[in-house]
Amino acid sequence: MSVATNKLSVLEFLKRHISKSLSGQDSTHMEYPTRISQTLGIRVIEVGSGTATVEIDVDSAIHGNQQGTVHGGLISELADAAIGTAHSTLMDEGETFASIDLRVNFFRPVWKSTLRAIARPVQSGRTVSHYTCEIVRDDGKVIAMAASAVMTLRGAQAAGR
C-alpha cells in the first residue's frame, strides 16, 4: 500500500516548515532542510517569493579561526544558505540552480552570537539572478554583506542535480 504525498512548491513547503505545520505527506522537489544546514545548525526562519532569512548560533569556541573569532567561511556559508534558500522559492518542478559567484565583505568580528542572514533579490532574470545578503549579529550590527549571482537550470541542464 503506497502512502499518498502532498507535493508542494518550495515556498509553500518552507512556509509550513517554519510554522511547524508540515504533515508527514508533505514534500517538495528539493531537499529541505539541506544536509549542510542540518550539520551546521542553520535554521530557515522566514521566506517569501525570492527572499529568505536564515540564522545560526555561533561561538568562537566551536566555530573559531586562528584569531579567536568566528571563521569567515562559516559566515560565507550562512550567506550562501540564505541566498540559495531565497532562489529556491522561485524554482518549479524540473528546475534547479547553481551559484555563479559569491562575494563577501566583512565589517565586524563575532565571538558569540545568533547571526541572521537576510537575502533579497537585486535583479531576477529568467536565467541569471543577482542577490544581496546582509548578515547581522544579535546586537543588530551588520557584520558582513554578501552579493551573489545564481543561474537557474532547466531541462537537460537540471537533470541529475
Score class of each variant (00 low, 15 high):
Gly125Val: 06
Val142Tyr: 01
Ser49Ala: 12
Arg43Val: 11
Val47Met: 01
Thr39Cys: 10
Ser148Pro: 02
Asp80Leu: 10
Thr39His: 12
Gln38Tyr: 05
Met91Thr: 11
Leu11Arg: 02
Leu102Tyr: 02
Ser124Gln: 08
Glu31Ala: 13
Val44Asn: 01
Ile83Gly: 02
Trp111Tyr: 07
Ser113Asn: 04
Asp92Asn: 15
Glu77Arg: 07
Gln25Gly: 13
Asp101Met: 07
Thr127Val: 14
Ile18Tyr: 00
Ala146Pro: 02
Leu40Thr: 07
Ser148Asp: 06
Gly84Ala: 13
Val58Leu: 05
Glu12Tyr: 02
Ala158Pro: 05
Leu115Arg: 05
Gly68Arg: 10
Ala82Arg: 04
Ser88Cys: 09
His87Gln: 10
Met30Leu: 12
Ala156Ile: 15
Arg154Phe: 06
Ala156Tyr: 03
Lys15Met: 04
Arg154Met: 15
Val104Gln: 02
Thr152Ala: 13
Ser37Glu: 14
Ser113Met: 03
Glu93Leu: 14
Phe106His: 12
Ser19Trp: 01
Ser88His: 14
Ser19Met: 09
Ala147Cys: 07
Lys20Gln: 15
Ala149Met: 13
Gln25Asn: 14
Phe107Tyr: 08
Leu8Met: 08
Lys20Glu: 14
Gly48Arg: 03
Gly68Tyr: 10
His87Trp: 03
Ser88Trp: 02
Asn105Met: 02
Asp92Lys: 13
Ala82His: 05
Tyr131Glu: 11
Gly72Val: 08
Thr28Trp: 04
Gly94Glu: 10
Glu95Leu: 10
Val110Gly: 00
Ala52Trp: 00
Gly160Lys: 12
Gln66Lys: 14
Ala159Met: 12
Ala159Asn: 08
Asp59Pro: 03
Ser113Ile: 07
Val110Arg: 02
Asn105Thr: 09
Val110Ile: 10
Ile118Met: 04
Glu77Asp: 11
Pro33Gln: 08
Glu95Ile: 06
Glu46Val: 03
Ser37His: 04
Thr28Val: 12
Asn105His: 11
Arg43Pro: 00
Thr53Leu: 07
Ser37Thr: 01
Thr34Tyr: 03
Thr114His: 01
Glu55Ile: 11
Ser99Leu: 10
